[in-house]
Amino acid sequence: MKKTPLAIAIAALAFSGGAAAESVSATTTVASTCAFSNTSQGTLVVSGTNVTTDAGNKPTTTVTQNDPAGFDLTVGTATPTFPGSLTMATKNIDVVKTSGSNPVFGSTANEGDVETLQNVGSDVFDFDFTATLSDSAIAGTYTIASEMTCVAAGG
């Protein structure tokens, strides 16, 4: 007999269609993304044994990401391509952050530096090359290729 009120309550809930417990939700997942944009190649100035980036036309790029601490930014090794048997005797590469939302690399970065992008948003970087040749410059095409990589952090 004591079970009767409980049975009535359960039946009432069933007939009510459980309306009191109904809820609607909508979810989605935003993909974690890192992208480079506004990348421009620069020009080099060669004089004697010195090779530098043209101050008025430095390589530049913008990195944008939407996942706090989801990506690391690395500065890769610079690779020269010079005419004849010329090689790079010395080199220095400064990567300068000119604006952005992450306090990465301090004022400048160098080859091999890695930093985690803690903040969502965009950061703009300029590349400044200074190198010396193994001998005086000869006629030909001079290239110094530098690298910047946005790497998904390993879980």
Binding site: Q41, G76, S146, E147
Partner: peptide, 9 residues
């Protein structure tokens, strides 16, 4: 020139 390689991994 002064080339820049960008890479996403």
């Amino acid at each position: 020139g002064a080339a820049l390689i960008t890479r996403v991994c």
